[in-house]
Design a protein around this nucleic acid. Structure first.
Length: 473
RNA sequence: GGUCCCAUCGUCUAGUCUGGCCUAGGACGGAGCCCUCUCAAGGCUCAGACACGGGUUCAAAUCCCGUUGGGACCA
C-alpha cells in the first residue's frame, strides 16, 4: 500500500463528458497500479451552473465504467468555511488584500490595457491600498509573487517554466464570500493530501498560480501531470457538435463499458503495439511514462470496432441481460418474455459476432423474437422464385415429420433434400433464409431454425413456398 | 493581445529520453483477394506518415535553433 493519493474533481455543470472519464480513468489506473487512493470531489462552488442531476450523472457515469472511488464524493459547497478560513489566513499573513474595484472599472481598464498592447492582467490598483475593513462589495485577491520563475516538473509534459511576472493577482474570495476555482482546488488538494494532481492540460497555465498559493499557505506541493485534450475530427476541442460526448449517451447507444475504457485508455496512452486490454491488465501495466503529450482526435470508428470486439467475445449470459432494455426499446419487450434464459443466451450467441452495438443486436433479434417477419420485397423477388417452391414444401413436410426437432436433425434433413433435388447449398440457402428471416443476412441457417423452433420454422417455410409460387418469372 | 503546450500514415499510436537494429512497426478506417449457406468474423495483400528550413554528427524520426501550423489558458 503506497501513500499515493489522486483525485478526480469534476464540475457538475452538465453531463459527464468522455474527456472527463478519461481523466478519471488515468487517475484511477494510476492509483490502482500504485496501490494508492482515488478520491472523488465535486467542484460545485459555481452555484449558478451546478445541478443535482449533473452530480448524479457523474456518479452514474463513473459507476457504469467501473471507476470506483475510495473517498468522497466530497462537495466543495460543504467546505465553504474551510476556504474562507484559509483565505483570511492569507490576508493576515499579508499574502492577500481586499480589492474594491468594480467589474465595470476592471473591464474598462482591461480594454485600455488591450488597446495599449499590454498584458491583460489585474493592474494592481488595490494592491498597496491596505484596505482593512471594506464596506460594501469587496473581493479578496491573492498577492502573487512577481519576481523569479516557477518551474513545474510535469509528469507528462516535462519541465515547464513560467516567468512569475506573468502571474496575476487572482481573486480568491468573491464579494459573495465564495471561493474561486483556483483557490478552492489548492485548499482541497492540500487538505485532502493529494500527492499527484493528474488533470487536463487546460489547467497547465493555472498551475504556477496554484503553486504560489500552495507556498503562501505553507502546504507541501503535489506532483503535477497534465493530460492533453481530446479533440473532434476538426481538431477543435471535443464538444457536442462533434456528436455524442457524454458517457451516458454511449451507454444508451449500446456500447459496453469495457469498450469505452479500452478506447479511452488508448487515447493518449500506449503499451507497445497492444490494442486490447482487460481492466486487470491495465491496472498491471498502466504508467504515466507512456502518456502522450499531444492532443488526440476522438475516432468513433475505432470505438465501434472495440465495442464489436467485446460484444463478440462477451459472456452470453451477461450480454443477454445487457441487451434486454434494448429489446424492449425495439418493441420486443413483451414477446421476448415467453422465451427461456437458455434460448436468450442462444440468441445472443447467434448475434454477438455480427453486431457492433447492443442496439444493433436488438434490431437483429426481431425475426427470432417476433412471431412474424417483415419480408424484404427485393430479396423475395430475387430468391423466392417458382423453382424453389417444391423444395421448400418438401423441407417443411420433412421437418414437420421429424420425430424430434433439433439443429442437427434439421441440418440432416436439409442436406438430404438438397441432394435429392440436385442442388448446391449455395443455390438453396438464400431462398430458405429469406423465407425464414425475411432478409438475406442472418446467422447460420440451422442456428436460425434452432432459434425459431419447429413450429415457426415450418410455417415460415410454407409461407415462403406459397410466395414463391405466386411469383411470375 | 500575452503566456504556455504540442507536432510520425486520414485517425490512434510504436520508435524520440539512452542517435545507427527504421528502405519507419502495429491498430482503426479504405481497396483487393481467400474462406464461405448469407451477413459477420478470420486469414493474406496493397495504398498511406517522420510539418518545413537550418545546424550538430561518420550517421538524425530521434539532439539543437528557427519557421509554420494546431491547441489551451487569461477576459
Amino acid at each position: 500500500m503506497s501513500n499515493i493519493r489522486v483525485r478526480f474533481a469534476p464540475s457538475p455543470t452538465g453531463y459527464l463528458h468522455i474527456g472527463g472519464v478519461r481523466t478519471a480513468l488515468f487517475n484511477w489506473l494510476f492509483a490502482r497500479h500504485e496501490g494508492g487512493k482515488f478520491i472523488l470531489r465535486i467542484e460545485d462552488t459555481d452555484q449558478s451552473r451546478s445541478t443535482e442531476e449533473a452530480i448524479q450523472a457523474i456518479l452514474d457515469g463513473l459507476r457504469w465504467v467501473g471507476l470506483d472511488w475510495d473517498e468522497g464524493p466530497f462537495r466543495q459547497t460543504d467546505r465553504i468555511e474551510v476556504y474562507r478560513a484559509q483565505a483570511l489566513r492569507l490576508l493576515d499573513q499579508g499574502n492577500a488584500y481586499w480589492c474594491v474595484c468594480s467589474a465595470e472599472e476592471l473591464d474598462a481598464r482591461r480594454k485600455e490595457a488591450q488597446a495599449k498592447g499590454l498584458a491583460l492582467k489585474y493592474d494592481g490598483r488595490c494592491r498597496e491600498r491596505g484596505i482593512t475593513n471594506p464596506t460594501g462589495e469587496a473581493a479578496l485577491r491573492f498577492r502573487a509573487p512577481q519576481d523569479g520563475e516557477t518551474v513545474i516538473e510535469d509528469l507528462v509534459k516535462g519541465r515547464v517554466v513560467f516567468d512569475n511576472s506573468v502571474l496575476d493577482d487572482l481573486i480568491i474570495l468573491r464579494s459573495n464570500g465564495y471561493p474561486t476555482y483556483n483557490f478552492s482546488v489548492v485548499v482541497d488538494d492540500a487538505s485532502m493530501g493529494i500527492t499527484h494532481v493528474i488533470r487536463g492540460d487546460d489547467h497547465l497555465n493555472n498551475t504556477p498560480r496554484q503553486i504560489a498559493m500552495f507556498q503562501a499557505l505553507g502546504f507541501t506541493l503535489p506532483r503535477f501531470g497534465h493530460l492533453s485534450m481530446i479533440m473532434g475530427a476538426d481538431k477543435t476541442r471535443l464538444s457536442k457538435r462533434h456528436g455524442a460526448t457524454s458517457v451516458t449517451a454511449y451507454r444508451e447507444m449500446g456500447y459496453l463499458p469495457e469498450a469505452m475504457i479500452n478506447y479511452l485508455v488508448r487515447l493518449g496512452w500506449s503499451f507497445g503495439d497492444q490494442e486490447v486490454f482487460s481492466i486487470e491488465e491495465l491496472v498491471q501495466k498502466f504508467s504515466l511514462d507512456h502518456v502522450q503529450k499531444s492532443a488526440a482526435v476522438f475516432n468513433p470508428d475505432k470505438l465501434l470496432w472495440l465495442n464489436a470486439h467485446y460484444l463478440r467475445s462477451g459472456e452470453p449470459k451477461r450480454l443477454a441481460s445487457l441487451v434486454e432494455p434494448f429489446l424492449a426499446q425495439a418493441g420486443l419487450g413483451e414477446p421476448v418474455k415467453k422465451f427461456s434464459q437458455t434460448w436468450k443466451e442462444g440468441l445472443v450467441m447467434a448475434l454477438q459476432g455480427r453486431s457492433q452495438t447492443l442496439i444493433e443486436m436488438a434490431e437483429k433479434a426481431k425475426p427470432y423474437v417476433a412471431d412474424n417477419i417483415i419480408l424484404d420485397e427485393s430479396a423475395a423477388r430475387k430468391f423466392l422464385v417458382p423453382a424453389v417452391a417444391p423444395v421448400l414444401e418438401q423441407l417443411a413436410d420433412q421437418l414437420e415429420a421429424l420425430p424430434e426437432f433439433s439443429k442437427t436433425a434439421a441440418e440432416e434433413v436439409f442436406k438430404t433434400i438438397l441432394e435429392s433435388a440436385g442442388m448446391k447449398m449455395g443455390q438453396f440457402a438464400q431462398p430458405a433464409r429469406v423465407a425464414l428471416t425475411g432478409g438475406t443476412a442472418s446467422p447460420g441457417l440451422f442456428d436460425v431454425m434452432d432459434l425459431l423452433g419447429r413450429e415457426r420454422t415450418v410455417s415460415r417455410i410454407r409461407q415462403g413456398a406459397a410466395r414463391a409460387l405466386e411469383a411470375r418469372p
